[in-house]
Write a protein that binds this DNA or RNA. Structure first.
Lengths: 202, 202
DNA sequence: CCCGGTTTCTGACAGATGTCACGGCGAGGA
DNA sequence: TCCTCGCCGTGACATCTGTCAGAAACCGGG
């Protein structure tokens, strides 16, 4: 009985190469291959894969959002997130989005096929080093408002803009940003934003 | 006559998948595969590839530096840079480092094999869209000092640290940073740094 | 030689940023 | 009930950052 796979990655060359790699396994069959997150669900509904391998960085809809939609609308399809290392924070959100596997692109070559088979056997598959890093990063120490302000700071550069968007006084925004920098152990709002993002606190 | 290939990419899963993909071509043979930039030259000297496919983001030595070393020490080996899209600025430096091809990972699946064959035929191969973007970005308008200050700003966060490192007055550093922000059309030193980096001006 | 343009460098000044101390509010324990 | 604790929100203040006008050094052309 072959395992039917859906492959989603925006880098066409990589997607194709992964498809060839997985196609070498005698019990695998790649039944769909898309380059955008918002094409994942339609392709899954049409081709009914057993496992969907989703990259996180995709146009249209990111891999985590696509995973959430997929698990809701195509219950028989298991989701494995496949992404670049260094984004340890995504692991937690991937699990919350219903993914049952998380494989990093730095992993050994056979890790992917192994993960697919174990997911089909009902296991949850997470790279141990990644799991450890996520546990080490811990829960977010940011308060809800600090998080809001940081998210707003991502697109609006200046304090005044953030304050206007959130209907706060400028002093308040500065205060939350200050709290975020101390909690992340950084010096700038910029670094705080980067660190919080990496750790999945946003 | 088979074309001998060296493959360098730090993401093992991707490297392996690319190796399989290229191995499908009857006239290709992957003779070496490394995950670090500083292992490229030794591998090339040992296995004598005709073409080296180098990713840019690698530990030890980045792909551009590895390309420079490789073209100097292993003249018979042609270098093709293979990297993520969006780093248009690297194209210029790649060419200066002696690369004869530049393929983005967003390219169609057969672009890589095509590029290898054309490089072997003596052509230079560059993605047309990428070439256009590079031309549009143009030469760096930054003066040498502005460039120095921006590079220093990459690691040192505060103006005082940059000034101390470059033996300049703080006002001077601020002035160069200001010039850089206006020339990049941005508002912060942070954005200026990001834009200048993307365009390969550093 | 002089002159105009460019680069390098500097201090002054306005505006943005980060830190601090403070008050209000709700949850939970003594 | 009272108290404590944590979060939310605010203004004041010192510091940092970005912009400006301008001086000194350098270079190539006339």
């Amino acid at each position: 009985m072959t395992i039917r796979l859906l492959l989603a990655d925006d880098q066409e060359l990589i997607r194709h190469a992964l498809g060839v790699l997985l196609g070498l396994e005698p019990d695998f069959e790649v039944v769909a291959s898309v380059g955008r997150g918002d094409e994942v669900t339609a392709a899954a509904l049409e081709h009914r894969p057993d496992v969907a391998l989703l990259d996180i960085d995709m146009p249209g809809l990111d891999g985590l959002a696509a995973a959430a939609v997929l698990t809701a609308q195509v219950p028989g399809c298991r989701v494995v997130i496949l992404t670049t290392f260094g984004r340890t924070g995504y692991l937690r959100r991937a699990m919350e989005a219903g993914a049952v596997g998380f494989v990093v692109k730095d992993a050994p070559a056979d890790a992917l096929a192994d993960a697919v088979r174990r997911v089909m056997a009902g296991e949850r598959v997470v790279d141990p080093a990644l799991a450890a890093a996520t546990l080490a990063a811990g829960e977010s120490p940011l308060t809800a408002r600090e998080r809001d302000v940081l998210i707003a700071a991502r697109s609006s550069a200046t304090v005044a803009e953030i304050a206007a968007r959130l209907y706060l006084a400028e002093g308040t925004v500065r205060n939350y940003l200050s709290g975020a920098t101390t909690k992340t152990g950084t010096r700038n709002r910029t670094e705080a934003l980067r660190v919080a993002d990496e750790r999945g606190w946003l």
